[in-house]
Amino acid sequence: MNDTAIETVGLGKRYSRKRSSWALRDCSFRLPTGRICALVGPNGAGKSTLLALAAGLLRPTEGTVSVLGRTPGEARELIGYVAQDKPLIPQLSIADTLRMGQELNPGRWDMAAAERIVAEGKLDPSERVRSLSGGQRTRVALALALGKRPELMLLDEPMADLDPLARHQLMGTLMAEAAENGTTVVMSSHVLTELEGSCDYLLLVDGGRVRLGGETEDIVAAHTLLTGPVADLAPHTVIEQRTAGRGLTALVRRDGPIEGPWETAEPSLEELLLAHLRSPDAPDLLTPSAEHRTDTAVRA
């Protein structure tokens, strides 16, 4: 049984031939199956590109990406994907949109599940997609993606433009469906708090590469927030430090136990991510489960 949802080796994507325009470069990581993964990073970091490559919508410029042990093209039936702007066909009714899902996924489609997701939003199936609000569109797009019973869900900024109530409802629907079917979910966002409660895996993409990858708990546990007098922090890796007079605040990646005159605390996930984003030179960290295993993933 394949336990790898996504694996990339040296993955790179460049949209034009100009040298500076790599959207993603030298990106290697592995995402085990069954995880709810937050794909975070600032705007323009390459999150959408990474998801589109995994969904088989883009061809890598270099490197390889495999999904569930196959090329993204071969895994097409197993992947659910919701793009950032939730494209749907405006002239179709909701019922016709779901019918399209059924026609395009023969043998896989679960109409009852898709209709249930629509019904939970109190949507009239005869309503046309063009008249739906942003939240309603997201719900229909999710129903279309979940109706094909994917093994891997790729959601690009799924909750952007939603009010907190709709966000909470949809996240609940999504998590319930994922839990029921053991679906691996990757959700991108530039607002971490949107995802923090639901995700147990983390990929931080910044500047076109994966800087942090692994179980959220393990990544947080590998770091310590120190406050105390200015002193040499070796052998720990300093991610970020600030001095005020003789006082020091530093976020370090531990190498062995912390010994010294400092007060230690576990950083919050947000502090940890912000520290990494502010320090582009900090070394990358992939936990063992996020390290790619093969030298080349299946050729796309």
């Binding site: 093209g73 097409r76 659910g80 994907y81 494209p87 395009l104 094909k148």
Partner: peptide, 14 residues
């Protein structure tokens, strides 16, 4: 232009 082609491609149609 509006991404519905990609919608089809992620609905199991190559």
């Amino acid at each position: 232009e509006n991404g519905t082609a990609e919608l089809a491609w992620t609905q199991s149609v190559s």
